[in-house]
Amino acid sequence: MWKRYAAVLPANPWNWVAVWRRNYMAWKKAAIASILGNLAEPMTSLFGLGFGLGAMVGGVDGIPYVAFLAAGMVATSAMISATFETIHATFARMHAKRTWESALCTQLTLGDIILGELAWAASKALLAGTAMMLVAATIGYASWPSVLFALPVIALTGFAFASLAMIVTALAPSYDYFIFYQTLFLTPMLFLSGAVFPVTQLPDIFQQLSHLLPLAHSIELIRPAMLDRPGGSVGLHISALCIYAVVPFFLSVELLRRRLMC
């Protein structure tokens, strides 16, 4: 059992790059549309929610609502982007398009392929998060240069959510099942993680719960970076995100081994 698992783990630290490059090559063909989409999405959420709600709410914690929301939206867009890439595009490559099947005939292991897909989803999350941050920066809600600290956090956030979504991908018989993950996991997380309103508004039990949520940790890191404020417990938040990135990855390798290599 353990031997079979060991045989499908990533073979070396660089094999995954080939899978990443395959996805990059395919993405390049529609890069313009993808980038425009990534820019349009923050416009709607920041301007729509930010200014609309902002006018009613006024300020949060002594800053304009849009400034508060911007960090939440950066983390959220990384979450959504990584998740959707994994449960839709990656699922298609694994399932209908048989891209993985051809890769499995080569010296790549299943672990290499999964790692490449996760790295790719994290890259797309970085793109989406950065686009959101650029829009926030142009309207003056991202402080330079502290905002640069947010970039690695966005990538890590993307990796963590891709990793979690990979478990869903491994277990889902078809696309229809992804809706459960969205409605039962992602949407509540959005409201419990301090993305659109401060966690302190929540009842105590939900505040406790939010300490377990990866999005909350991501926002705790990104918000101070964007507002150039001192952040607390940086080590804790980064460790939490790392756990969410690593543990589901190793679990998904086993789940996908059972699914594909039986």
Partner: peptide
């Protein structure tokens, strides 16, 4: 080298 029974060529390329 493998030629699978059903083609697994990448249709995006």
């Amino acid at each position: 080298g493998v030629v699978p029974q059903f083609d697994t060529l990448d249709r995006e390329f």
